[in-house]
């Protein structure tokens, strides 16, 4: 929980600054193209979970890459724990789970080795992983369920198992900002409920700020403190309960009558009136726990 640091001054700064601060950011890929994102301001506090929702092409991936420091904004500021994202990343302050699974098919390495190599990536020569890092790793593997198959070769895992491994790796870093890009793609409802609980545990234990980016509403509603709707610009910045069909219609308007938009709105309505739908109980429970925690905090 406490990040071991030789320089307490920096550690204090990290704790004081918000995990993610985006202010008035604009970005376009080529000068003759329209803005990919514009006027985006977003703030992720410690111990909060913020979801960014938007249609395909709405700028979600651009936002992620800006937050990671892969892209530099044309105007505006991006700060992770008070520093430029690329610096924060090098210090291991950003835990990032990509939308794409690592290309590990056929890689001859056990899950445990993969994770300890990952956590010790900066080590050289004779230096070995320190015991606190090993403890964090063990905890992360337990909480994600990756410890159940820690001796299996990483190249032989299913997509869902690999997802847990990658998540375990990001959590074990005990980052300041945990950035999850489409974390529940291909995960069923029960899996999503469990996932929401997992995020809650991580938030409690590490105190990090979480940013979830998704086009899938079901993934967002459970457990998010705030939801930002992104379609080139931020359309609304609301708590999940305020996410009304009219807000959604605005965000997804560019998709017209497209099937994707329709499905999204439906999915959201289903989540809103939990008592009338098929698998509401687990989702409900997952949604309630964080809210209580938030009120108390």
């Amino acid at each position: 929980m406490d990040r071991p640091s030789a320089q307490p001054a920096i550690s204090t700064d990290v704790d004081a600054a918000p995990p993610l601060l985006i202010e008035g950011v604009r970005f376009r890929y080529q000068s003759d193209q329209p803005d990919a994102v514009r006027d985006v301001s977003l703030r992720v506090e410690h111990r909060s979970i913020v979801g960014v929702l938007g249609p395909n092409g709405g700028g979600k991936s651009t936002l992620v890459r800006l937050a990671l420091g892969d892209l530099e904004p044309m105007s505006g500021v991006v700060r992770v724990a008070g520093m430029p994202p690329s610096t924060a990343r090098r210090k291991g302050l950003i835990g990032y789970v990509s939308q794409e699974r690592p290309p590990v098919a056929g890689v001859p390495m056990s899950v445990r080795d993969f994770l300890s190599y990952s956590l010790g990536a900066h080590l050289t020569g004779f230096r070995r992983l320190q015991s606190d890092a090993r403890d964090r790793l063990a905890w992360a593997m337990d909480v994600t369920g990756a410890s159940a198959f820690d001796h299996r070769p990483i190249g032989a895992l299913s997509g869902g198992q690999l997802q847990r491994v990658v998540l375990a790796r990001a959590i074990a870093m005990e980052p300041c900002l945990l950035l999850l890009d489409e974390p529940t793609v291909g995960v069923d409802m029960q899996g999503q409920a469990a996932f929401a609980e997992l995020l809650e545990t991580v938030r409690q234990r590490t105190g990090c700020g979480l940013l979830l980016v998704s086009h899938d509403l079901r993934a967002m509603v459970a457990g998010c403190d705030q939801i930002a709707c992104l379609n080139q610009t931020l359309h609304a910045h609301v708590a999940p309960d305020g996410l009304t069909p009219s807000v959604l219609a605005e965000v997804f308007a560019h998709e017209g009558e497209g099937a994707v938009g329709a499905v999204h709105v439906e999915a959201h309505l289903a989540a809103d009136c939990t008592h009338e739908h098929d698998a509401p109980s687990s989702r409900d429970a997952a949604g309630r726990v964080p809210k209580d925690g938030r009120d108390g905090a």
Partner: peptide, 12 residues
């Protein structure tokens, strides 16, 4: 084995 993951972990 995982270039993007390595980058996320702060490896140059």
């Amino acid at each position: 084995v995982d270039e993007e993951g390595a980058r996320a972990l702060g490896v140059r």
